[in-house]
Write a protein that binds this DNA or RNA. Structure first.
Lengths: 343, 343
DNA sequence: CGTTTCACCGTAAGCGGTTACATAGACCCT
DNA sequence: AGGGTCTATGTAACCGCTTACGGTGAAACG
């Protein structure tokens, strides 16, 4: 790798001029600029990122805090890959890279996790990261506050945090749930139950709200026994479904707050001798891949998966470059009608 | 963030001593060492990574080359998430982070992709990365050679590259396929077809070999019309199945080289009025999530998904720290018997 | 007791950039 | 002609850390 000094020597200028050519063009004479540029291209010059970061206190990396939760080893993000694709490509449009942070390795901070976000904030400073993208690990929402307060620009996914330099992006969970339940109502159902996500989870709560609002607007009374909680995992969907089927007046339709749980519910219904959608209508949420494979294919609420990453990248870049902070971003959802509701 | 100099002043020593405490303990007096350590802990000192990297020409990051192929936007890695989990946690055990490289953003290297790995190698040097992990993008296997020749320590996943500082990790694709076909043979099938992956793909070829060997060992003649090629995607599985069913003597069992294609084949068989496994036995490969959800659940060859990441991390770390290069790592596969083969 | 050895530590020179400040012409003005 | 601007560039300090080199004093040696 050629250094700035080499270029300077070959061009008969000082290193300062070389640096200026790249950082403050316009302040350097047209002719010498071209000369420097030409030599730089010949030598395939690339400024050393470590040196640049050290000097400017700004690297071209943003950190990804993705806690692969030890307490819940089976936890899989519903669409991590699409999210990463969106995030990566949007960031690279700005010349930024994504650094997947891991604190656990450093002996001095063993045990650091989302429960101790300080480690991540330290990493941010050590590497001069431009900011942090926080992926909801499903638990520790309170830990996110620490990030928000740290002064580090950060954008959380699916967790509502606010701070001077913190914002978040989430789907329109309330609206998505609403449209799902609307769909069920429009098909003539009135005994509509829901299987919720974890109680502490914000998207989960929003989905319950949407469920409730749709019912209320339709003049259908809410029944507490029709709201049974799960944890987004498939098994909890199965368990919840069993509980619902054991009711005196079982629901004729179920809105599950995740596709995984919907699949679980589907299996439970099938095991109970019910046929979907004839005996039970089912709607999920997420539009993960299995949704389209299962039989019958799942009607579900689809999120803009790559859009998540893109929005996060945009929000981060806005905080880094501009002084203006973006407000929370809420991505629209769309109802994907497949076979699991009949009609 | 406290700097080394501050610590030095508070301790009444020079910055060199502070540095030595962390990098060459043993060369510094017990008492002063403890003093430095204590002050460092009080100030929550963390060495600046940029400065350290600049000085040592070694960062604590390794790069991830994951080309989200533009030509095949729908391509999804069969188990990216598990792979990342394994990779990340194994790397962090060594204090390393994962940098997701993106060259496309840099205006000077627009169009850089796997077809032009030079951009990635440059990134490696600019950031003083310890090495590169290459995820098979499904195409450009030849581009991997460039990486291998670059002198940068790198480990490829599922692509056999060799070089002075390059190695790879892959599953025992041949053996996995062999065991899948063995399973079908043991159930009494003899008309066993296979739906292969892309012809240029190495795991795909290995799976075909395993298929052929199992047949040969059982004394069953190979039939060319029983080997139909797909591209790992679901649709190609459907298309391939249609072709197989149109044969004069259709197979009674099919080994698909990917679960996605197996699902596609399943749909095609179902559409043709066949019942699986009664009329057709089906085995897949990968053991992705849908495999267990589909009806009947798919018998498939399971890969050690997190093990992939762990092995890659181990290989990279071995190249960075030791002089010794690891040989190629071949991870064992296991046959997961579910419902799609009957028996 | 003079000299070597050794453990310990400070000095200073990098690493490769960025940038405040100084300088040197060129140009324009009165 | 002298003074003021403006442009283009060089000088040098600095970012924070690592490390080769040299120096110091005490212990060990002859």
């Amino acid at each position: 790798m050629a250094t700035g000094r080499e270029i300077a020597q070959l061009c008969g200028v000082s290193v300062a001029t070389v640096s200026r050519v790249f950082n403050q063009p316009g302040t350097v004479n047209e002719e010498t600029r071209e000369r420097v540029l030409r030599v730089a291209k010949e030598l395939d010059y690339r400024p050393n990122e470590s040196a640049r970061a050290l000097s400017t206190k700004q690297s071209t990396m943003i950190g990804l805090v993705w806690d692969t939760d030890h307490r819940r080893p089976g936890w899989r993000h519903p669409y991590l890959q699409d999210l990463l694709i969106g995030l990566k490509s949007a960031l690279s449009a700005h010349g930024y890279h994504l650094l997947m942070l891991a604190t656990s390795g450093d002996a001095r901070e063993v045990g650091a996790s989302l429960a101790d976000p300080v480690g991540y904030v330290n990493m941010t400073r050590r590497h001069h990261l431009g900011g942090l993208v926080l992926i909801d690990s499903g638990s520790d929402a309170k830990a996110f506050e620490t990030f928000a307060q740290s002064g580090v620009p950060c954008v959380a996914l699916d967790v509502a945090v606010e701070g001077p330099r913190a914002t978040y992006v989430t789907s329109d969970n309330e609206g998505g749930a609403w449209s799902a339940v609307r769909h069920l109502l429009s098909l003539g159902h009135s005994r509509i139950a829901t299987i919720t996500g974890p109680v502490g989870n914000q998207p989960s709560r929003a989905r319950v709200s949407g469920y409730r609002r749709a019912l209320r607007e339709a003049g259908v009374a809410s029944r507490d026994d029709y709201v049974v909680s799960g944890d987004f995992y498939r098994a909890s969907g199965t368990a919840a479904m069993h509980r619902l089927l054991a009711l005196d007046e079982p629901p004729t339709a179920v809105f599950a707050a995740s596709d995984e749980m919907a699949v679980g519910a589907l299996l439970a219904a099938r095991a109970a001798g019910l046929q979907v959608p004839r005996d039970l209508a089912l709607v999920g949420f997420d539009d993960i891949e299995v949704a389209s494979v299962v039989e019958p294919a799942l009607t579900t609420v689809s999120q803009d998966k790559p859009g998540f990453g893109v929005a996060a990248a945009k929000a981060i870049m806005a905080m880094i470059t501009g002084a203006e902070k973006e407000g929370p971003l809420v991505l629209p959802t769309t109802l994907v009608v497949r076979g699991s509701c009949g009609g």
